[in-house]
Design a protein around this nucleic acid. Structure first.
Length: 453
RNA sequence: GACCCGUUCGUCUAGCGGUCUAGGACUCCGCCCUUUCACGGCGGCAACACGGGUUCGAGUCCCGUACGGGUCGCCA
């Protein structure tokens, strides 16, 4: 039997990291087993389900590289893939239940009679979970009264207005679409017995369930829309690589069993992915480690890929990406940019006309003894350099230092701050080379004038 | 409140009865490399929630307690 998994998001105008990870696990599982990954849009809430909010999901998945074999814009033999278009199917499944006398009306809504026996969920991750719906559903907790009250254990499957409830459509769709494996968040584990009761009532095979642990905030609370790291689009905006996000998401709740931390691509993840490596316990989201993973991915990028990925960020900062110095400048940036959004800051001192001096950096340099002489000597030697490239530039700085009996080290920091505006930055000599002699000398002199005059 | 799931360094995790004086990674700190900034290398801090069993032997199995999360909707 061919493996079929799915991701069934509700278009809310937001692609949550938790949802993306669920999609990733399903995608990985399908690819690992040569199966199909299906995308189904649970757009029963018409108000929230706009074309825009659907595009957010589709584009987010595309950015991650999680392509679907069937679904919106792709089609397939099990459509339609929008729940809003599947009413006829739901009606026919409702009739099955009705003809078996498993449904009755209650204040205009329809309820499904749950069986009075233990239902065992054989979960791949959580093990066997046994629940009696009749018993468990006969009482419910009233949040306002803060106590238990009597309840009807039979579950509502259709509202008085004719619209169907999640549990019902979810099961019907999974049956109709031939899902063999359902990997979803652990928050659905307690709902699964209900789903199984429905599968059995329909006489359908129950898929293999695997409930994956949740990703929580660092303080242990549930990740909401506003939680740091929750929105996939923040990763795009901040210059994360999709491969890095996949890498980090995969490792939050799953481990290959070894020490491997870096997976350069989805293919590498597919290679190692296995449900037996999925953890049972919830995990806390750590943006710092995610950033580290991203930095590793940036370092591993080949030059053209790095240039392409950085392009939008450079343009946004006003750097002309067609400038011949850009490729070399990018190599200076890659080992110090953990996110692509940090790349422009490294290159700006090279490409920007006006320099902004970092106050702290300036203070650090200006307070040194004999700094005026250091800077003016430096400017003189840089100016009389007649071979503006790496080694020769370095020699000029060295000679400048020697001329007043100082060490080269004493000249590097002043030179860095005067020419680039900050104590922090990329390798200095290549920077000077790209800045150009004329501009570099002018900057050093301007620095002297502005802060040492 | 009932039910369900879980509990190894601050965080992500390895560990599937003896090889654990518990390994790796992130973070933090120190040292080295670098006459600059980083990268890198080396080292350090730091954990089996607690209590009972089972066993010759338990981080690993069982029970209980505590704590955390989830579900109890005519939301998905």
């Amino acid at each position: 039997m061919t493996v079929r998994t799915r991701f069934a998001p509700s278009p809310t105008g937001f692609l949550h990291i938790g949802g993306a990870r669920t999609a990733l696990y399903n995608w990985l599982y399908a690819r690992k087993h040569g199966g199909q990954f299906i995308l189904r849009v649970e757009d029963t809430d018409a108000a929230r389900s706009t074309a825009e909010s659907q595009a957010i999901i589709l584009n987010g998945l595309r950015w991650l590289g999680l392509d679907w074999d069937e679904g919106p814009e792709v089609g397939g033999d099990h459509g339609p893939y929008y729940q809003s278009e599947r009413s006829a199917i739901y009606e026919s499944y409702l009739e099955k239940l009705q003809s078996a006398d498993l449904v009755y009306e209650d204040e205009g809504a329809l309820r499904f009679r749950v069986p009075d026996r233990d239902i065992v969920v054989k979960d791949v991750v959580c093990g066997d979970v046994s629940v009696n719906l009749k018993e468990q559903g006969s009482r419910r907790y009233d949040a306002e009264l803060k106590k238990e009250v009597d309840a009807n254990p039979d579950i509502v499957i259709r509202r008085p207005d004719g619209s169907f409830i999640f549990h019902f459509v979810n099961v019907v769709d999974d049956i109709e679409m031939g899902m063999t494996h359902v990997l979803r968040g652990e928050d659905h584990l307690s709902n699964t017995p209900k789903h199984m009761a429905l599968y059995e009532a329909f006489g359908a095979d129950v898929p293999t369930f695997a409930h994956i642990p949740l990703n929580l905030n660092p303080d242990g609370s549930k990740m909401s829309k506003r939680s740091e790291g929750a929105n996939i689009y923040d990763y795009i905006d901040q210059g994360f690589l999709p491969s890095a996000v996949n890498n980090y998401m995969a490792l939050l709740g799953w481990s290959s069993g070894g020490d491997r931390e870096i997976y350069q691509s989805l293919d590498e993840l597919v290679e190692d992915f296995d449900l037996s490596g999925v953890n049972k316990a919830n995990s806390k989201f750590d943006i710092k480690k995610c950033i580290w993973v991203n930095a590793e991915h940036i370092k591993a990028l080949d030059a053209p890929a790095f240039a392409e990925a950085s392009g939008p960020f450079l343009e946004k900062a006003g750097i002309d990406t067609s400038d011949a110095r850009v490729p070399a400048a990018l190599e200076l940036a890659r080992e110090r940019a953990e996110k692509l959004s940090e790349v422009p800051a490294v290159l700006l001192p090279i490409f920007q006309d006006d320099l902004e001096y970092d106050r702290d950096s300036v203070d650090k340099v200006v307070s040194k003894d004999g700094i005026a002489e250091v800077v003016s000597t430096l400017a003189d030697y840089l100016e009389k350099n007649d071979d503006w490239q790496g080694d020769a530039i370095k020699a000029s700085i060295k000679d400048a230092a020697a001329s007043i009996g100082a060490k080269m080290g004493a000249f590097m920091l002043p030179c860095r701050v005067a020419a680039t505006g900050s104590t922090a930055g990329a390798d200095l000599v290549p920077m000077l080379e790209m800045i150009g002699q004329e501009k570099a000398v002018a900057r050093v002199r301007a620095f002297a004038e502005q802060f040492l005059g």
